[in-house]
């Protein structure tokens, strides 16, 4: 059973003078626990694809299946309900609620998904702990650095234990130290079985994935596994000339 399946998915933006095809017939199937990186030049349709998978952008044609239920035909409000329960989203810009504390930002999605206040609190404490943010729980998002805010956004996306975590350039404006924190958490949740689909330009982040899907001009031009091969010390892995 796949977590997410797209069948001949098409998106054509028809707002302007000429209709612009952004995604041209994508077939994609993601199995439970898989970590898929989506890469491609800008304008290749990566973001549009992930937004459609999460119901944030309506498809023009084709099918989307989530946990073996067809979801592309859902109304906007039904999508909203589904997202609360089954989908976690992280974007390049964190979109935290400014007048709520960090703790409340993270607990909210769990509560909306139907968790009890106690469950939501425990989950929040675990996630913030894993991200070294426990001490910032009572702060407002505005008091946090960019890297901290992105980690909070990641914690929030994971708070409802989603079937799939969808991420669009989640390390897009982080420095390398903050990127490392996000990498560590992604590695951990993936190890715990979290299904992840992530658009990224950052090769370090993409390299965490099991599988790479390359988009070009709105179509999948490559879909295959990322091999893990060599172990050894820095001097052995990196050839010194």
């Amino acid at each position: 059973m796949s977590v997410i399946k797209a069948v001949n998915l098409v998106k054509i933006y028809s707002g302007g003078a000429v209709p612009v095809p952004a995604v041209r017939g994508v077939d994609l199937q993601v199995e439970p626990g898989e970590f898929v990186a989506i890469m491609g030049p800008s304008g290749s349709g990566k973001s549009t694809l992930v937004h459609m998978l999460g119901g944030l952008d309506a498809r023009t044609s084709g099918e989307i299946w989530l946990d073996d239920k067809r979801v592309d035909t859902l109304s906007e409000s039904a999508w909203a309900l589904l997202r609360r329960k089954k989908i976690g989203f992280v974007f390049q810009f964190f979109n935290l609620v400014a007048n709520m504390t960090v703790a409340d930002n993270v607990e909210l999605p769990a509560l909306l998904a139907g968790a009890s206040p106690r469950e939501a609190r425990e989950r929040r404490q675990n996630l913030l702990g894993a991200l070294n943010l426990s001490e910032r729980a009572d702060a407002a998002p505005g008091q946090l650095s960019g890297g901290e805010q992105q980690r909070v956004a990641l914690a929030r996306a994971l708070a409802n234990q989603p079937s799939v975590l969808l991420a669009d350039e989640p390390t897009g404006n982080l420095d390398s130290r903050n990127t490392r924190d996000v990498l560590r958490l992604l590695t951990e949740v993936h190890k715990d079985g979290q299904t992840i689909i992530m658009v990224t330009h950052d090769a370090r982040v993409a390299a965490l994935a099991d599988r790479l899907v390359s988009l070009f001009d709105g179509a999948i031009v490559d879909d295959g596994r990322i091999a893990r091969r060599r172990t050894g010390t820095a001097g052995e892995v990196i050839d010194l000339r």
């Binding site: 965490l208 790479l212 091999a227 893990r228 172990t231």
Partner: peptide
């Protein structure tokens, strides 16, 4: 590209 990413993955582990 996949080859480079697999090298990158080794470096991540390292």
């Amino acid at each position: 590209r996949r080859h480079y990413l697999s090298l990158m993955s080794d470096l991540n582990d390292l």
